[in-house]
Amino acid sequence: MHDAETTATTGGGIADRKAAALNAFKDLARDPGVPKPDPILVVDNVVRRFGGLTAVEVNHVEVQRGSITALIGPNGAGKTTFFNQLTGFDTADSGTWTFNGRPMNGVPAHKVARAGMVRTFQLTKALSRLTVLENMRLGAQQQKGENFWRALIPSFWRDQEEEITQRAEELLVRFKLDAKRDDFAGSLSGGQRKLLEMARALMVGPELVMLDEPMAGVNPALTQSLLGHVKDLREQGMTVLFVEHDMDMVRDISDWVIVMAQGAVIAEGPPSTIMSDERVIDAYLGAHHDAPLSESELEAQLQEAEAALEAEIHETEGTTPAPGSAPEPETAEERQK
């Protein structure tokens, strides 16, 4: 639905940007750290240790300008920690990285954002007791009224505030939050907060938008709309780097995928083929999962399976399960997620 809308408004631009991004990746090797034609972000030897645990150890990785790059990996792969290093929310033990050729290691978080590299959070950080509109206004940079002395005299900042408000309202319309503009951000639903956080990040005017699990906790109805907005970012010339677990989403919107496991980048590639890459399957499912089995092992496994099957049949025929027992595994599974 959203796609149709954006196509209608931006015309042929959409195909161009996507094609340009895909074209850039066309002949790239599938090796970790492969050089890109026009990288906006270049990372070298970033290491972060927590005591004895090495959470991140990335030798080299580049992010192509104007593309949507996904960062995936199993739980505990160090994706979010890596994000935190790059955005200045945590200090790396060693390593260097450049954004638009400018070295960014050791730069505090607020200066990283000012440089044009803006992130969102896995757990949304809506500013609950500020209105939606105030949340948006906060994102604007170089505000005259954010200086203490000038704040005291409204005529210094009133004009700029009006411009900011207008820009905020346009974004709110785009993100379908305009009806909520005067509500407290704390009263929004989970998905609306994600939308607000993304819209607020755009108020900063970023070149590189870094989304940490943009789909986590979003109801399916909003997923499509969120996907559309992420694609929109590329159409407007921004670069997107996002962490995500949902493979359907990764396949749908990303131009390139970087896979992390145990702190390191283990593979890169286009989304259509990355999940069939041996290194990626190993990382997700463990190595040797498909090594051929010996005759006796096969036999034992077969028996085991049959026994389990029989036990199940007995159970369903014999006793009806107690009302409380059935949903239990489901909730346990949910908790694990």
Binding site: H110, A113, R114, F121, L127, E134, L138, Q143, L152
Partner: peptide, 25 residues
């Protein structure tokens, strides 16, 4: 005056969530 201004808005935002404010520069 201050709390109606953008300066006060930053303070209130810090009260709500410091990291979000950092991420906005």
């Amino acid at each position: 005056l201050l709390m109606k201004s953008p300066w006060g808005r930053v303070l209130k935002a810090i009260r709500e969530d410091e990291d979000a404010v950092r991420s906005l520069g």
